[in-house]
Amino acid sequence: MTIAVPTWRNQVSPVLDEAENFTVVEFKGGKQVKSVLINLAGKSQMERIRQLEAIGADVILCGAVSNYYYNLVSARNIKLIPWLRGNVSTVLDAFLSNGLEHKRFIMPGCRRRRRMCRRFGQINKRKE
């Protein structure tokens, strides 16, 4: 499995749409076999996704992401786990140990429900 994390000052980048550097970590048999930092500055959003796909990223752990970009990435074979924050290696460890639901990894405003957006969420608030 290969995981990509948009990285800024060793932290998860605040906005995936604008992220320029990605930590790409490859795991085999539960062990980390490779970790590189790639710079995608100057590339379009679509080129960044294509490049991450080309290096085999299966999962992107990221911070905030616009619905538009979320849809673009989700249409590829990459799983996107957004609204995360914190130190990149700590977030990676938490992902591998199923610990990402902890408050310290979730961006403020997204704690009550990890959501990408409301979508049809309003249906559930209906006043019928």
């Binding site: 800024w8 980048s13 605040p14 906005v15 749409d17 604008e18 992220a19 320029e20 911070g63 905030a64 924050r85 961006m107 403020p108 405003g109 704690r111």
Partner: peptide, 25 residues
């Protein structure tokens, strides 16, 4: 505007709350 309640924002890093296009650059 941000959708972040005050009690969740105060004490946090501004980039995690504000999530602006320019935070990083």
């Amino acid at each position: 505007i941000t959708g972040v309640p005050e009690n969740e924002a105060v004490g946090e890093y501004c980039c995690d709350v504000f999530r602006a296009s320019i935070c990083e650059t």
